[in-house]
Nucleic acid binder design. Structure first.
Lengths: 148, 148
DNA sequence: TCGATTATGTCAAAGTCCTGACATTGAATC
DNA sequence: GATTCAATGTCAGGACTTTGACATAATCGA
């Protein structure tokens, strides 16, 4: 794209635009890296969260990965068919079925993490170390400001 | 989601996760606000870019809004049907058809901008003014690090 | 205790977006 | 000038995501 006269009041310089652009770049890099491991970004996110918090339900995972329950349902069916996660067909109480990683799921996740963490390192290496904490905090501030 | 024991080495504290979360919050807020104006986020982005840089082609707009040409094609057909943009059926040279906003398109955009800019103000108000510039720069640094 | 509210899992339909492919056009190279 | 090369617009197919809806189950309050 041609950017002849970037002005400060231009949309292209707004926070939202920059945020969107950074996210698009991250998403693109992750898409490409994860494809080699046979995973989509939502699938990877699901495995990652599940490794940190075993036993989460479908609705829990949906909230944690910022998609709807319906979307997560599709994601989980794919992961279950691939044998990377498992959840009981029935549960003693309630409807929520706790999900856990299979050994194969842990194996695939470990391999994918190498690729993804390398991408994240490229991001953090671009930021001055003493600014990183402030950056993370700003992310949270923005998120909170938008949620309330 | 329950976050019982947030640890520093947890995925949920990684830059990528925070970035994704902030983007999801922004996207959600914009979705909700733009629905009242009959626009989707990609449609709004298209109008916004077009207002700043009239005469852009479909491929130009796709790059500027981080979607594929195919997706932008669909977006533009919707906007054209709604009478918000226009582009010549034929062009003197080349294939690229320069697109411009219609008066109605400008009207809708102005109304939508009020809502969107209010959202963006909520974000920027949450950031210490002297840190805002550094934040924007960090966004760009991350984007560049991921692109190369 | 019982009704209302809330939360969960799932189905269906629609919309959105992407990958892959192709024809057309302009530019670059020889 | 002819031939590659890159870029554009578009079609087709599939994958992903969402909105809307419904039945089930836990929780809360009167």
């Amino acid at each position: 794209m041609a950017t002849p006269h970037p002005a400060d009041d231009d949309v292209l310089s707004h926070v939202g635009y920059r945020l969107k652009r950074a996210h698009a770049a991250l998403r693109g890099a992750m898409d490409k890296a994860l494809r080699e491991h046979g995973l989509t970004v939502p699938q990877y996110a699901c495995l990652e969260v599940l490794a940190a918090r075993p036993g989460m339900s479908n609705a829990d995972l949906a909230r944690a990965t910022f998609v709807t329950r319906q979307s997560m349902n599709v994601v989980m069916r794919g992961l279950q068919t691939a044998g990377l996660i498992e959840r009981p067909d029935t549960v003693e109480a309630g409807r929520a079925r706790p999900t856990t990683l299979t050994p194969e799921g842990r194996r695939v996740l470990r391999a994918a993490q190498k690729a993804v963490y390398a991408i994240e390192a490229r991001m953090t290496d671009a930021i001055a170390p003493r600014r990183l904490a402030a950056l993370l905090e700003d992310f949270d501030r923005m998120t909170r400001a938008l949620e309330e």
